[in-house]
Simulated assay, not measured.
Amino acid sequence: MASVDAPRKPERRLSKTGRERLVSVGRHAVLLIWSFVVLFPLYWIVSMSLKPPSEAITLPPDWIFLPTVYNYIQLFQQSSFIMAFANSVFMVSASVILVLIIGVPAAYVLSRWKVPKQRDVLVWILSSRMLPPVAVVFPFFVIFRRLNLFDTRIGMIFMYVTINLSLVVWVMKAFFDGIPETLEEAAHVDGATQFQAFWKIILPAAKPGIFSVAIISFIFAWIELLFSLVLTNDTAVTVTMQVYQFIGVRQIEWGMLAAATTATILPVLLLIIAVNKYLAAGLSFGVVIKE
């Protein structure tokens, strides 16, 4: 007798919608885990700043505790920290404004005009970021001493502009390269001069890039420590130096250190939140231009 084959079970395959849903769930799970990894140190610092000094470094840590602002009260009662915080806000903000005034037009010229030996000029501009800070800080120390710029706010503003200028020029040149020249040609047809086309057409289109480099320049200048340690002493002390002061030789004031760190991070977060809508608008603008 011929053997009768057993009936095969029907294969179950996910539909296209099911596969897409599964991929979406996996992607969101990965993003959620990564967000937890990134944000956990921030949570740790903030929670430590809200604990009394006796509970700040207890192990295992107290996950449920009664928050207190004792560390912040002690922190802002120190006039040195307030002065350093004000110094950093003034010097960093002034340097960002100056670096945009210098770097954005320079990037536009390098993007739209044929500059002699343009490639060499771009490499020369970038070379200021190639050397490690420790290799150039002592020459700057000698120069600042000779020019009476040591421990001055003007000197630190100049230093911040120097370390951020190459970044602004390179990023903004790439951004201007992505803006079609037909926008300027249309403005010229309507009777606009070269400056009017740049001011009224190109700059508004480049606003997302300008805000991006402004944020990056602000962060790089705000968190800088080595130049502040070497080039300042009393008058132009920065907030990062004051945070460093809470790390003593024999003990570390963990509560005060966490409060100072949180206060230092806050301006950067507020700045990013304030300009977030411009960055989102820039993404949609880029899509329209490509089409």
Rank of each mutant, 00 (worst) to 15 (best):
S166V: 05
I163C: 00
L165I: 07
S212W: 05
N148D: 12
K173C: 04
F218P: 01
A221C: 13
V213H: 04
F141I: 01
S166W: 03
R145T: 13
D190I: 06
I201Y: 02
R145Y: 08
F144P: 01
G248T: 10
I252S: 04
L203F: 07
W170C: 00
Y244H: 10
V171L: 13
I215V: 15
H188V: 10
P208H: 10
L183S: 09
F176Q: 06
F158G: 01
W222N: 07
P180D: 07
W199L: 10
A135N: 05
I202R: 07
V230K: 03
I179E: 08
A214E: 10
F176P: 01
V230G: 04
S166T: 03
R153A: 13
Y160F: 11
L226G: 04
S228A: 15
N233V: 02
A205W: 05
Q245L: 04
A221T: 09
I202E: 15
K207C: 09
S228L: 05
L231T: 06
Q242Y: 08
T238D: 05
V142D: 12
S217H: 05
H188K: 10
N233Y: 03
V171D: 02
F220E: 11
A187D: 10
I210L: 13
T235F: 12
V168F: 12
M156K: 00
F198D: 09
F140V: 14
I157W: 03
V161L: 01
F227N: 11
